[in-house]
């Protein structure tokens, strides 16, 4: 039985915001990469939408992290060792917060480059530098770049869960499955968001049904991981605390939020997935996805809320 005598770090709303947006951005970039590398040519439209969404979703992340610091102006101490006589970079592979700071920085660069590339391909950016980027990414190099970017995106979407586990806090350190859980939920949230966004681009709706299918798989994965987390907590003897009022009810709501994607509420999208449907029809179907999107995203947020707050109160 695990017994804990720690104090709480008071990681609250800013951190919740970061975990939410970081999970969606990393998931979005991963989806974009998969669609571009493995999808049919018709999936390129959705891939572009995903690349375009990944960067703005990320933008707020460093800001949230920085204002959560006691000393925001010292955010760079995460990267540069300022201890007198040390110097050099601050990097500790065994501290997820340290690795995560670097990963976020690198991932940001990849997300930005892909954003610029897609804007240029869409003809929205014409600056010579943007064109040079798009040109450089046209061939195999581009595939490598988005492949690496997707790996970083997967890391950003998941390390936050590992970070919580690498502590001595109750609940967080009693399970090793939080990283996986955050990743599965980030993927399912970004698939729902992308399915909703895809209709804003001609041809984008062609990918909707594939996204609905992915979402179903991700939801199954997330359910398995929730079960794993709870089993871990039961083994450590902290399950009662994790499910005490009001957390138990909130966990149930998280599970409930996975039901719509599971039973395929994304299904009707299939009916308009042909290129022959008019844009108006596609819009109408997209609109019917809105409640589903809201429920999935709320679940993504709520799960992180429960994990973060139930350990600290």
């Amino acid at each position: 039985m695990a017994e804990h005598f720690v104090a709480s770090p008071h990681w609250e709303w800013y951190i919740l915001g970061y975990f939410f947006l970081g999970g969606l951005s990393g998931g979005m970039y991963t989806l974009a990469t998969m669609l571009r590398l493995w999808g049919s040519p018709r999936d390129e439209a959705a891939a572009r939408t995903a690349f375009l969404a990944a960067f703005p979703l990320l933008l707020l992340c460093p800001i949230l992290l920085t204002i959560d610091l006691g000393r925001p102006l010292r955010f760079w101490h995460m990267l540069i060792d300022t201890t007198p006589g040390h110097g050099g970079l601050a990097f500790k592979y065994w501290s997820p917060m340290s690795v995560g700071s670097w990963a976020l920085l690198l991932y940001g660069a990849f997300a930005l480059v892909s954003f610029i590339e897609v804007r240029t391909l869409d003809g929205r950016m014409r600056a010579p530098l943007a064109r040079a980027i798009a040109h450089a990414l046209a061939g195999g190099a581009g595939r490598v770049v988005i492949g690496v970017g997707a790996l970083l995106g997967l890391y950003v979407a998941s390390y936050t869960g590992v970070l919580l586990s690498v502590s001595n806090q109750p609940i967080w350190s009693d399970t090793w499955a939080l990283g996986g859980l955050f990743l599965a939920s980030g993927l399912s949230g970004s698939a729902a968001l992308l399915a909703w966004l895809a209709r804003y681009r001609p041809e984008g709706e062609a990918t909707e049904w594939r996204l609905a299918q992915m979402e179903r798989y991700f939801a199954i994965l997330e359910l398995l991981l929730i079960a794993l987390v709870l089993a871990n907590l039961a083994g450590a003897g902290t399950l009662t605390r994790a499910l005490a009022k009001p957390w138990g009810v909130l966990w149930a709501l998280v599970v409930a939020s996975l039901v719509p994607p599971l039973v395929g509420m994304g299904g009707p999208a299939i009916q308009v997935a042909s290129g022959t449907g008019s844009a108006a029809v596609a819009r109408a179907a997209g609109a019917s996805r809105t409640p589903m999107l809201a429920s999935v995203l709320l679940g993504v947020l709520l799960m992180r809320f429960v994990v973060i707050f139930s350990a600290q109160f």
Binding site: P96, S158, S165, S167, A184
Partner: peptide, 23 residues
């Protein structure tokens, strides 16, 4: 919790990417 935590991530990532591939 580093090793097991990242192992959990790795397994989830593998399954997630596989799901994408299947879809």
């Amino acid at each position: 919790n580093n090793r097991t935590g990242y192992l959990g991530v790795l397994m989830t990532a593998a399954l997630g990417v596989l799901a994408g591939l299947v879809a």
